[in-house]
Design a protein around this nucleic acid. Sequence first.
RNA 1: GCCCGAGUGGCGGAAUGGUAGACGCAGCGGAUUCAAAAUCCGCCGCCGCAAGGCGUGCGAGUUCGAGUCUCGCCUCGGGCACCA
Length: 874
Amino acid sequence: MSRYDPAQIEPKWQKAWDEAGCFTAWRDPARPKYYVLEMFPYPSGRIHIGHVRNYTMGDVVARYKSSCGYSVLHPMGWDAFGMPAENAAMERGGHPKDWTYGNIAQMRDQMKPLGLSIDWSREFATCDPEYYGQQQSMFIDFMEKGLVYRKNAVVNWDPVDMTVLANEQVIDGKGWRSGAEVERRELTQWFFRISDFSGELLDAIDGLKDWPEKVRLMQANWIGKSRGLQFAFSTVDAPEGFDRLEVYTTRPDTLMGASFAAISPDHPLAKHLERHDKKIAEFVAECRRIGTSEEALEKAEKKGLDTGIRVRHPFDEAWELPVYIANFILMDYGTGAIFGCPAHDQRDFDFATKYGLPIPPVFVAEGAEEAALTEAYVPMKSERVRYVRGFAGDDVQTGEAAVDAAIAFCEGKGVGRGVTNYRLRDWGVSRQRYWGCPIPVVHCETCGVVAEKKENLPVELPYDVSFDQPGNPLDRHPTWRDCACPKCGAPAKRETDTMDTFVDSSWYFARFTAPHAKTPTVAEDAEYWMNVDQYIGGIEHAILHLLYSRFFARAMHICGHLPKKAIEPFNALFTQGMVTHEIYQTRDANGRPVYHLPEHVYRLNLYGEDVAVLRPDNFDAMTDEEAVEFASDPANRIEIIPSAKMSKSKKNVVDPMDIIARYGADTARWFVMSDSPPERDVEWTAAGAEAAQKHLNRVWTLCDRIAALPEGKPGTGDEDLARAMHRAVNDVTQMIEGFAFNKAIAKLYEFANAVQKSDASKQVQRQAIMVLAQLMSPMTPHLAEDIWAHQGGEGLIAQAPWPKADPAMLVDDTVTLPIQINGKRRAEISVPKDMAASEVEKIVLADEAVIRALNGGAPKKLIVVPGRIVNVVI
RNA sequence: GCCCGAGUGGCGGAAUGGUAGACGCAGCGGAUUCAAAAUCCGCCGCCGCAAGGCGUGCGAGUUCGAGUCUCGCCUCGGGCACCA
């Protein structure tokens, strides 16, 4: 009798696949292609269970499609630039490059034992000069096509560390290391013109049929198309050059409810005023301390300052409105100036209340009378309301109709024009950091901003940098910065900004089609492999990464790097849920949170209370009683924060390597695919691994037992087992196609139970176990190969064609119909599948439970849903 | 604050508007064993001896029939443009 020993069989079959070249992708004109891609990982150093879940899902699809006869491309790479490498260098010394490549090597070593069907010959990291050099080349192409430009933009500035901070590094308005109040500072930065594509990116969402509806909605909302009126107020008492104030509104129908005008602290008028007015300067400075994130701005207390300037209402010269500077107005949206209508906007209402401004209603609910408001009245735009201060359209109309009428009216009067606006802003790609793709540009005193010559690419990052001072090491590098102007040859300075890491991840999927080419892509490879047929990744990337990639694909097409068909690069998208874990927290002397890894925490249930303590050094030497006693002391307790997305910064990560070492990869794979639906978050618990292991053992034992049956052994129930087999093939296939892996696994449990209980002939049992192995092979490929070989299967299961269900074996002759009385199930009957409804009715009315319920009377109604259910209404 | 999503037994979860709880975990009972592990068989939403009643976050509604559809809430999670 053989034993299931993953430690022995897993390396064996991985070697067999390698030797057979099972996973090397090649252009095969004879077969349809299938490109399956999981979002590539950031090389943090260790894979976590979320990676295992993500890559196993992709692997199931890749292996399944390969069995179905497709020529499959399933590559892997590394999203390798970014802040953590620099943070590590600052905290622990060392170099970001060494840290990153060291991490990649470790993670590759951790991933390989999973037995993923990856074409490792295509692997690359975005920090490879071979990759980012091509990215620089495309940056230059984008410059030539006018897709790139420079403008001023604000960043978070830490005045103590003298460095730019990411939003993540700003905590409650303070720098994460220095604790200093963060300021906003303007820098000249590089931008991609994604907003030129707003309309197209929005319209094309309709074509993304195989994307989750919620992602399409989120993208549409992010792009944020709005129709409104842009017009200018004429100003009173404004400085020279500011005799007009342009505002944009999506509710021009509320113009008669205007109560004030407000401008962003970054508005040119505000900037002008702060130079001459101390109070304004102080207020604007206060606004700038809020930070740059939209979340911070929206959550901050709404404040404003009256500038003393007035504007004239466009319909009434005598009607003047005060102009405030307000901290919640975004310079990037519309014109950076608004008029406030407090009656119909809660934020404006709060503002008007705070500063004692009038709140005139423009419309009231249909049938209601005008009355003083205690909160803003904001009905749906599609709702009909009665206008009491309307000026265009009907008295009673929907908001939509009123907006259209108001725009038409204003255009007719020469007050502004209807415009379509988008919320989407241009993509700022400049980062004042070392560990990123250098922007391949040179600043020359005579020629200005000049693109580097392509033959000089890649502009490689210098290795000799130090992280002992804050700020960008490229800025203070002694020689790297100095260069010759590509145009005139005079001494010039390199751009020291590097690119946002989102740029790196916006085209890697295209690069995988020709990963080592001397151009960004190769036409025939892109033509054959694009698009990605199935993209799989976290829901947290639903907006930015996917939107940037959609833009990038268009830009690459414009520059001739992708075919037209690839401008929407991902045919189907699946967003997997996240693996969550609870968080363990203590606080340092300054009250700032400190997080702890689960492996350093002893977690137990103490008299019904969930308790966590940090494991003391001598924890392993403690007896259970001592450990409980230690945990009982409230002084040792640490805080448990409810389960959240696993993140390195919160340290709530678990190590899948332990599971692989202990149970083998197939168990880990089986486990992460079972139970939770793949699109849903799953909280990590260790309990299920044992169960998965047990089941795989059971399947192996079953295989062994069947192999040991005497040849030609007759049996009973051949037909039943054959039917169960065809049913399993049909169901599991459907469920894999539909990304319902947890349900596929439930079916596989059922089928395994059926095989185990069967006393069919050896021939049928053998067929059943081999089909079971095939159906399991996408999830547990090693075990499946071993069963296949044990039963004398031909070749590798990885290369065997996917089994097909015989439709004739799927139909049952009789069905069980539940009988409901007034919608509650009361009985059931078994009838031939095709029995006429009238026949069914007769049987139902003769049923004992029905007769009892009717109590001699006749039913009000009798509903027969053929093949499903019967409902008797009394 | 704004946008998006999710809530079903002790737990993870099944359920084209049609038998709520498939499948698994945990638990309970039994077989095997000197004993244990492993394995196998059975039970397993709640209340109730039973008949029966109640049950899908809360409150309404549509329907012969609602976990599923509509409206209003509550709670939790994701994103918010420099985290990746």
